[in-house]
Nucleic acid binder design. Sequence first.
DNA 1: ATAATATGCAACTAAAAAGTTGCATATTAA
DNA 2: TTAATATGCAACTTTTTAGTTGCATATTAT
Lengths: 106, 106
Amino acid sequence: MQDKITKIFKAIADPTRREIFHALVLASTALSITQISSQFDMSRQGLTKHIKTLEEAGLVYIGSKGRERFCNANPKQLQEVNKWIKFYEQFWDDKLDNLDRFLNDS
Amino acid sequence: MQDKITKIFKAIADPTRREIFHALVLASTALSITQISSQFDMSRQGLTKHIKTLEEAGLVYIGSKGRERFCNANPKQLQEVNKWIKFYEQFWDDKLDNLDRFLNDS
DNA sequence: ATAATATGCAACTAAAAAGTTGCATATTAA
DNA sequence: TTAATATGCAACTTTTTAGTTGCATATTAT
């Protein structure tokens, strides 16, 4: 299967899923599938698939209560992205003009 | 077209592209398409497509020198990802047990 | 019990992405 | 100038992803 960071990146690479995630982060309470899907111009099933993708990435938690399933955002999962990026921060400055230098000198 | 952050997320969501990006970040000098593709078990054309995706996301710069095209990583572009995440950091802690609380009380 | 609501599962279509091969062109080396 | 190298472009196949519809099931309301 896909590794964790790939799942997270794929989940947030889709604009619709970022919207869903955003709505859940801002919501003051957990929202049911139906409540969420009423905010989007998409079938409930289409939305459910996106929610599942977010859940599998660890960006959303879901819990059942009766016949309903309530979703809550887990923004803390984005720490994984921060961890991935951290390694590359050390290169931010020294890479800057490498290419120009390379193409002009030699 | 896709917005900048979507291009960046999609670019790094693919494991092969992350590998290519990583190799370019670690390279002490700019690498030609052929040099890069020799490190991957994939056709040159397939690799070229990935490079183009990375370039369009601003994660790689490319410059021509004679018949060759040299690529260099631009890890600084990942700042865009950091900016996107920053908003969500304020919710890392208070979201923590929302769902459990919601499911158990009320 | 019956009806309405919330949801999952499966099958399907459509669109996007990943990856290939073949050919054309420009540059460099012999 | 001829041959070799580095590359782009276009067409194509395969795989994945996005989104839909229809049906079944469980829970709640009447």
